[in-house]
Simulated assay, not measured.
Amino acid sequence: MTAMLFGMNASRMTAVEELWRRHAKEAFPARLTSVDVLGIEMVMLDADIAGCVGTWLHDGGTLDDRRWDVLAVRKRELGRVLPELAGEEAAYFRRLDEMVDLLRHSSAAPPPR
């Protein structure tokens, strides 16, 4: 069982690393630097998720409770704003959403609240 969990975590880590590399190469959507979508500041949405993903990768797939809480809030916000975005803007934030999903479904994630 431990080997299976380790294998799943290694696979998940690799998937997040690949998405992270792709994401880091993309410029933040210019229009969204000064625009809130449904009252959500898009620059901060990006920054908060990026900070959590970077920490998760740096710390070997773990996060503290505060960052898990941030991800939970930001995941809900992504669900609200994604239908409002199109094209490259949508692709940029869908990639963040995919990374959040991978982190939240890792064995190190706390149970949903």
Rank of each mutant, 00 (worst) to 15 (best):
V35W: 03
R31E: 15
A72L: 02
F28N: 02
E77Y: 08
D101M: 06
E26Y: 00
G79D: 15
M42P: 01
A90S: 09
M42W: 08
A50C: 10
L71Y: 03
L82W: 08
L103F: 04
M44S: 12
A90V: 00
L63G: 02
F93V: 06
G61Y: 06
W20Q: 07
L63A: 02
P83G: 10
L96H: 07
K75L: 04
R67L: 15
G60E: 11
A47D: 13
A24C: 02
V35C: 00
W56V: 02
T55N: 08
D36N: 15
A72N: 04
V70R: 02
W56R: 02
H23I: 00
E77H: 08
T33C: 08
D101T: 10
K75Y: 12
D59R: 14
K25I: 00
A30C: 01
L71P: 04
W68L: 06
L45C: 03
T14G: 13
R31L: 15
D65E: 15
F93R: 03
D46H: 14
W20E: 03
R80N: 11
G61E: 05
F93K: 07
M44A: 11
A90M: 03
V73H: 14
R80Y: 12
W20S: 04
Y92P: 07
P83L: 10
L45Q: 12
V53Q: 03
G39A: 08
D97Y: 05
R95N: 15
R95Y: 05
D36M: 14
W20C: 00
Y92T: 05
R94A: 07
A24D: 04
A50G: 10
M44K: 13
T14P: 00
D101H: 08
I40A: 10
C52Q: 05
G39K: 08
A91R: 14
R66E: 14
L32H: 04
R94K: 12
E18N: 07
V35L: 08
R74W: 00
A86G: 03
A27N: 08
E89I: 04
L78D: 07
R74E: 09
E18C: 02
R76I: 06
F28G: 02
L38D: 12
R94H: 09
L96C: 04
D97V: 01
D48Q: 15
V70W: 07
H58Q: 15
P83Y: 09
V53A: 05
V43Q: 11
V73M: 14
H58D: 10
T33Y: 08
D65T: 10
V100T: 12
A47K: 13
E89H: 01
V37C: 07
T14I: 07
I49W: 06
H23A: 01
L82R: 12
A91Y: 02
I40V: 15
E77K: 07
L102D: 07
E17G: 01
E41L: 05
V100R: 05
A24T: 00
W56K: 07
D65S: 15
T62Q: 11
G54P: 09
R80L: 15
L78T: 06
S34R: 09
V16W: 04
E17I: 01
V43L: 12
M42Y: 08
V37P: 01
R80Q: 13
T33Q: 13
L32N: 05
